[in-house]
Nucleic acid binder design. Sequence first.
DNA 1: CTGAAAGCGCTAACAG
DNA 2: CTGTTAGCGCTTTCAG
Lengths: 343, 343
Amino acid sequence: MANISDVARISKVSVGTVSNVFNNPEKVKPETRERVCRVIEELNFHPNLSARNLSRLKTDTIALIFPFSKRKRIEHYYSDLLAGITEICFQMNFKLLLSSCPPNIDEKEELLIYKKMIESRAVDGIILTVSKYNDERINLLIDTKQKFVVFGRSNLPLEFPWVDIDGKYGISEAVRYLSSLGHTRIGYIGTPNILMFSKDRLEGYKYGLKRCNIDFNPDFILEASVDGDEVEKGENGVIRLLSHNSPPKAIIVSGSQLALGVIKGINKFGYSVGRDISLICFDDAEWNVHFNPPITSISQPVYEAGKLVSRILIKQIKGIECQDSNVLLKPDLIIRESCKNLN
Amino acid sequence: MANISDVARISKVSVGTVSNVFNNPEKVKPETRERVCRVIEELNFHPNLSARNLSRLKTDTIALIFPFSKRKRIEHYYSDLLAGITEICFQMNFKLLLSSCPPNIDEKEELLIYKKMIESRAVDGIILTVSKYNDERINLLIDTKQKFVVFGRSNLPLEFPWVDIDGKYGISEAVRYLSSLGHTRIGYIGTPNILMFSKDRLEGYKYGLKRCNIDFNPDFILEASVDGDEVEKGENGVIRLLSHNSPPKAIIVSGSQLALGVIKGINKFGYSVGRDISLICFDDAEWNVHFNPPITSISQPVYEAGKLVSRILIKQIKGIECQDSNVLLKPDLIIRESCKNLN
DNA sequence: CTGAAAGCGCTAACAG
DNA sequence: CTGTTAGCGCTTTCAG
């Protein structure tokens, strides 16, 4: 395979000029440029990326690390995100390095994976997803001066670019909607509380209740543990909730996998969604609309978040000023038929 | 950031030795090795990947290129595949470069994207997915001597590694099952016929009919066009099929998005799945089980295919002999409740 | 077992 | 505008 000096030799110019033909064409006299281009074509020459990366000390590549799926499939959360990210990468001529790591590895091991990625300088930036409470990864990224953007916020008092979805708003709107339907006995099944978005959503639940003048009943909320199957946790959780003396009449579920289990549990309990128990699911999985009755859902603009997050990161890498490097996106309540009107 | 010569200088050895500590530790005397290692730790030194790649003329990276989603989400076909691929990459210490390209771009443009990927030498191998009839990309890959593995087979008389799912078997088993239920009026709605897997599945349909001594009726089959929305095509298609004088009583649909539309169309037509019309869907999308009635589906082991495809590719790159570089995986018929027993 | 030195292929600063 | 040249950081061969 031809290299830059072959081209230089044959077209009788220096390698510098050939390099310029690629990187600063305006600096090359049209005639020379044309001659060089012809040779480039003849030799079918293409700059070697590794060499280019080494020389420029950058890679035009960003990375995303996500956990292995437990269901032999990428969680649709990442699937949506990836769709947005790859689209922006294509558009901005960046590459995406995709890594996955074993699920539920301990924090140290996960940090090590990030460390390795940073230290190898294989990428110019990293997209961090699903921020956690006291997320050490963020500290690492800052300490190593690695460029990054987080999808999610942090409890740590740190300045960094992020994109997030306003879960508090989403859930509180769900509460408001249920309240408008006459509901006061509203339960909540939350995702694991080490995840920042879980905290945000739970807050939305409490805030929503208060705004609607509904008393908060600690017996009505349940938070899933970190490990174990989401569907099972949902199923067991809802059964526990329904077994109370005076159980909730409506339930908000904070994740779509969890909701799958909740629906299963409700049926198992002998109840029927939309009739005996109203249901709202945070995160509008593709199948929610196909249930009978279709599930009222809070739809998250994850695809848009993916676009934003990668756009912000790439701009940052390119040194382009970015006015808004902290973006909070609003989710949408999509009203379907899983909530009963009590009025 | 420290580089290899810093380490060499401080630990008073040559860069060659430091390099050996990383790549051929057995060639370094334990004492020296230890001394060097200490300095490496002190300096927090990590080899620069770009330099390493350049020097070794390889990248330990493979690529996957898939089309943009039309639904702001990665098609679950790719989602399953990616789950398998990233898992193997992690395991074998390879990286994955993920690219997407605009949907329905013309063949020339798509080829260009592959060309660019190959020529830049950014990766050591490429995973090609969804092979097409007379797939030029395969020719390109062979001509450029690029290492690759295809997920899907080809009509071209070429030798190359591939992994595929036996669609013919899957569909013919579906026909056999319907026939065992007493069905003879079996329709078929196929995915676009430029895709190799579509041809394979259609063949399975015809073969299945023959095996069950059912006459082939060309009015009972319908192949979707390449462009346009899959759901819509399914909806329109099934309505056309049901509008015949003597329409089919059972329908096999060759893709899950298409099936979504088919179900919609059946309902719109005033029919009910499982009662008026039996339905089998190739590709067991996550939601199929949640329909009412749950849809009998042919489940494809795409995740396993992803693992295989990447394992074969990486072995090939590493020069490891691979006995089976052509693997045909069997899909599974998952019987649920969308088919009526006519017996 | 270790060191020296020649690449790997390209970029970018500088001189002309 | 073009050429020269010094890196970029590592691997690998060959001598010793």
